[in-house]
Simulated assay, not measured.
Amino acid sequence: MQVDDVDRRILRQMLAAPDAARAELAERAGVTAASLWRRIERLREGGVIRGEEAVIDWRALGWAVEVSLRFTLEKAHPRAFDEFLEAARAVPEVIEIQTFLGLTDVRLNVIARDMAHYQEIYRARILTLPHIAEMDALMLISTLKDSEALPL
């Protein structure tokens, strides 16, 4: 899909003020409300805008611990990867799953209310995931940059 400078302006304004009313977005992007609506619809149909969502800060809801777990999986079992992912998706405290090429096969981000809760999740849900060959844990200390903004 072809994206022009006006589309980029609209996208920048949507990222800068995601809760702004459409009339305000149109004004900020320098287009009419009708033009904004048509362009947003075209960007949705073209797959550039996949959706608009509420971003909820899980920390504000009392989840204080985040751990990134890196896994290397057993390669002998033909369905090891699929079975691991299926089991990991079923763990409610897993908020992100990423797969990689290289030494690490899968990375899970896990949240917990506190360290005791994390220990419970780790023992009951993480260690029971199938086909784990190796695992490494990284505890999040601070987030220095957390942005999905694009250089538009």
Rank of each mutant, 00 (worst) to 15 (best):
V65W: 06
M14E: 02
A133Y: 10
E27R: 15
E27D: 14
V55N: 04
A80S: 12
E66T: 10
D7R: 10
A23R: 11
R12Y: 08
R113S: 01
D19P: 10
N109A: 11
A124Y: 04
M139T: 14
T72P: 00
R42V: 01
L43W: 01
G30N: 10
Q98T: 10
Q119A: 15
V55T: 08
A87L: 05
R89P: 04
A23V: 12
I141Q: 10
A64T: 13
D19F: 13
E96A: 12
P130D: 11
T72F: 00
S142K: 14
E74M: 09
F81Q: 03
R125T: 03
D105M: 02
S68I: 05
E24T: 14
G47W: 00
V106F: 02
L127N: 11
V110E: 02
A54L: 13
R89M: 11
E27S: 15
R38L: 08
D114P: 08
W63F: 14
W63D: 00
A149Q: 13
I141E: 08
P92F: 05
G102P: 04
A26K: 08
R50C: 06
E24L: 12
P18I: 09
F81S: 03
A17E: 12
L108N: 02
I10M: 03
V94W: 05
E53C: 10
V91R: 01
V55A: 13
V31K: 07
T128I: 08
W63L: 13
I111N: 02
I132T: 09
R89K: 12
F84C: 01
M115C: 05
A149F: 01
A29N: 09
R12I: 00
L61W: 06
M1V: 05
T128H: 10
W63A: 10
Y122G: 00
E83L: 09
V55R: 10
P18G: 15
I56Y: 12
A33W: 05
I121M: 07
D5G: 08
L144E: 14
A133H: 11
I10T: 04
A33D: 09
A124R: 15
R79M: 09
V94K: 04
A29D: 02
A88V: 07
D146T: 04
A90T: 02
L127P: 02
A34L: 06
I97A: 07
L129Y: 07
P92S: 08
L108D: 00
A29V: 06
I10Y: 04
A23P: 04
I121H: 06
D57E: 02
L152R: 11
R42P: 00
V6T: 14
W37R: 10
T32K: 08
R38P: 00
L15Y: 14
D5E: 14
Q119P: 03
A90W: 04
E93C: 03
E52W: 12
Q98F: 12
E86D: 10
M14C: 14
E86K: 14
V48N: 05
H77L: 06
A124H: 14
A87Q: 01
L140T: 13
V110N: 00
L25P: 04
A90Q: 02
R79Y: 09
D19V: 13
R22Q: 13
A54E: 11
M139V: 13
L11K: 13
A133E: 13
V94F: 05
F84A: 06
R22P: 08
A26V: 09
K145H: 13
F84W: 03
F71W: 05
